[in-house]
């Protein structure tokens, strides 16, 4: 079976360490799924390329340009890997804006793996104090291991190294994905609530 993993990355520089971490998380997830005989389709959503479309969406209310495809990719994925650089003690504004323009419920119940990058490990609690609450609000199922990559991590092989954490996080996400049927969101246009039910106060 093919599992679709959307990889959302909010790094701004090119090359970007945020993208680097996102790619490693995607690779680890892919590896873990293949071990279980699953195929994966990885779709990377680079928010930098969509920055103007995201702002336009905030103003007009609809996704234009490449953003429409990105929104479909993320809401239709079996799992999401979401990685942001730390800006001013939190996720970046661009990262937040992307999740702001998704339709309500797009991530409900969806397995999500979180990652963040910064210059120093002193920002690592951003994962738990900023990112987890956001995805709790979005009703995503967030895997236990979230991965923080400080600059120094990219040159270390010590116990508990980045590589180890990345692999563990990838396995956790794969396990969640394996426990579920591949799913797309229910389309209210294909399955409208019958009017008698609406009239009776149901939805």
């Amino acid at each position: 079976m093919t599992r679709r993993i959307a990889v959302v990355t909010a790094g701004l520089s090119r090359p970007s360490s945020t993208r680097l971490l996102a790619d490693r998380l995607a690779e680890a997830t892919d590896k873990a799924l293949r071990l279980h005989g699953e195929r994966t389709e990885l779709d990377v959503v680079e928010l930098r390329d969509l920055a103007h479309d995201i702002t336009d969406n905030l103003l007009t209310g609809f996704p234009g340009g490449g953003l429409a495809t990105a929104v479909r990719t993320v809401s239709g994925a079996d799992a999401v890997i979401a990685v942001t650089p730390v800006f001013s003690a939190s996720y970046s504004g661009l990262f937040k804006s992307f999740f702001d323009v998704l339709e309500e419920g797009s991530l409900a119940g969806k397995p999500v793996l979180l990652g963040a990058t910064a210059g120093t490990a002193r920002h690592s609690l951003v994962l738990d104090f900023a990112m987890r609450p956001l995805f709790a609000y979005l009703r995503a199922t967030v895997v236990p291991t979230a991965v923080f990559g400080a600059s120094e991590d990219f040159g270390s092989n010590a116990a508990g190294s980045l590589a180890e954490r990345v692999d563990r996080a990838g396995r956790e996400l794969a396990d969640l994905v394996l426990g579920r049927e591949p799913s797309g969101p229910v389309d209210p246009f294909d399955n409208p609530t019958p009017f008698e039910q609406l009239l009776a106060g149901g939805s």
Binding site: T60, F62, G64, P188, F189, P192, F195, S203
Partner: peptide, 30 residues
């Protein structure tokens, strides 16, 4: 809102799509 299209259909009333602020694909679906 698909509920409003459903409502118009139930009564056999007309349905009007704003067709200004959103791409045509949304109008088409409604």
């Amino acid at each position: 809102s698909p509920e409003i299209a459903e409502q118009a259909a139930y009564y056999g009333d007309g349905f009007f799509a704003n067709h200004i602020f959103w791409p045509k694909e949304h109008t088409e679906r409604m």
